[in-house]
Design a protein around this nucleic acid. Structure first.
Lengths: 140, 140
DNA sequence: CTACATCCTCTAGTGACTAGAGGTGCAAGA
DNA sequence: TCTTGCACCTCTAGTCACTAGAGGATGTAG
């Protein structure tokens, strides 16, 4: 076991140093040993944990969901129904988000296309924003 | 000019009462007149402003961008280049966001599909999160 | 006149960090 | 051995765009 400093852990995991300390403070990452001079000294298991957290955050899972997922990971004999439920809920969110972003994209494209680079009083961007009725996708 | 209370403004604009006060506090919405008893009394112009802000927020514009857009709206003889630039920047963001959400969706679908509803140690959800190498879309 | 909804201001909390102040530890070069 | 200088430490406060709640005033319907 060689000592891994917080900086090294940050480099290897891609999670920033202050963020690692933050994860520790909210109990997402176990407190590591400390050196003589009170500096954090991580082990491989911490790096795995950080990778897990990072990946989950990138996938948009909230810290609370990650907490649940980590607890599940620690107890491999448990049913994975909760993990499945969390992932499914996230999938539904993502699908919803994609749908509304697609609608938004169409609207923004129309705005930008309509803009003749003239003066504001002929500007579609402003006009469309001002009048939602002109919006092609009033469901948002 | 009949008096429009903040509650009425909220109902008509779809912006919540505390949010309207918040917009006033950050200078996004002009301070309205007050009644004898110090209650806010809005005019039609405030409602238009609120509709504009709401729509722009729904489209994901930040408050600062909205501030710029509102300033542009107030001076219709100005060039609309800034409005155009803001909308274009937002469009690029949205396209990027859609791309990464699509990748994410694929990954989540695989996770959920792979989950045999057994125990955690056979669970794809946990496994994929733990090992980014298994991820089909390592660009995120 | 009395309920009662709505309004007021103010402070503090949310999530997930990020920034900065002010100080300590540690390894490498002179 | 000393010193330079980066990396580390803790703590507080700031970010964004709100949201929640306390504690009190106003306005309106019956």
């Amino acid at each position: 076991m060689k000592k891994i400093t917080i900086g090294e852990a940050a480099r290897q995991s891609g999670v920033k140093v202050p963020t690692i300390r933050y994860y520790e403070s909210i109990g997402l990452l176990a407190e590591p040993e400390r050196s003589e001079g009170n500096q954090r000294s991580y082990q491989q298991s911490h790096l795995h944990r950080l990778a897990f957290i990072r990946h989950a955050r990138e996938l948009g899972f909230e810290v609370d969901s990650i907490r649940t997922l980590l607890a599940l990971q620690d107890d491999p004999h448990q049913s994975c129904a909760s993990a499945d439920a969390i992932a499914k809920a996230r999938l539904i969110e993502v699908e919803q988000r994609i749908r509304s972003l697609m609608a938004l994209k169409v609207e923004l494209e129309m705005m930008v296309k309509g803009c003749g680079h003239g003066r504001v009083d002929q500007c579609r961007v402003i006009e469309v924003l001002a009048d939602h009725g002109e919006c092609m996708h009033p469901q948002h």
